[in-house]
Write a protein that binds this DNA or RNA. Sequence first.
DNA 1: TATTGTTATACTCTATAACTATA
DNA 2: TATAGTTATAGAGTATAACAATA
Lengths: 120, 120
Amino acid sequence: MGDELEGEGLTQARAELLWRLHVAGPSTQRALSEALRCTPRNVTGLVDALEAAGLVRREPHPEDRRAMLVTLTPQGEKLLARWREGYEQLAGRLFGDVSAGDLRGFHATLSHMLEQLRRQ
Amino acid sequence: MGDELEGEGLTQARAELLWRLHVAGPSTQRALSEALRCTPRNVTGLVDALEAAGLVRREPHPEDRRAMLVTLTPQGEKLLARWREGYEQLAGRLFGDVSAGDLRGFHATLSHMLEQLRRQ
DNA sequence: TATTGTTATACTCTATAACTATA
DNA sequence: TATAGTTATAGAGTATAACAATA
């Protein structure tokens, strides 16, 4: 039961980290920790699992030897390209008769509402 | 970090079970398992924790000796009444300038979208 | 035979705290 | 002294499988 996401250990939390890398590019674990609103320790575990699955890799930060840059591997890029395609198809099915502007408005409203709930 | 919900072990999953009891009334664990889309084993654990916190209790089912009826205690009812009040205040702040009909439409759209995503 | 809920076991997410290496 | 990430430890959610009691 529950989420599988392409089967084999691709959980919700790991998928969110992958999406973040997809939209933000290579990131330090500190940055991921803030974007995902979780602890650095948590990011360590998620990156460990995704690295073992061959979807991301850790690279030394070019200017700060304390930090790591987490990057999508070619295999990870390929997976994210498929996800994005699926997302766009779904959006088309759900909002096919709504203008792009209205869709942006809906997204903004929804994000605002979720943020209010989160901070409440 | 993360969700606390009134502090002290009231996690998201447990809160959802409480909401379900609030809207559906006393329920068997089988029914809760279906409503919450999780396994019966999972419900056992959630009810254990909520029972230990004094918010629900298990009662024998009057007609089926295999089944339990999970019910809110008076303390649980009191908590849910506060939650509902807070929910209504939040809805008022977010949608105060929207008609009740529009709000129902929004809820329906959002529910439909989430269901599509879930089943995709 | 089928159903309700449990015990047993395992993986995952998440947090706090203490620590190392670097800034 | 402060920051980036790790190890150590713990609570919680969730799943499958095997089982007892009951239908």
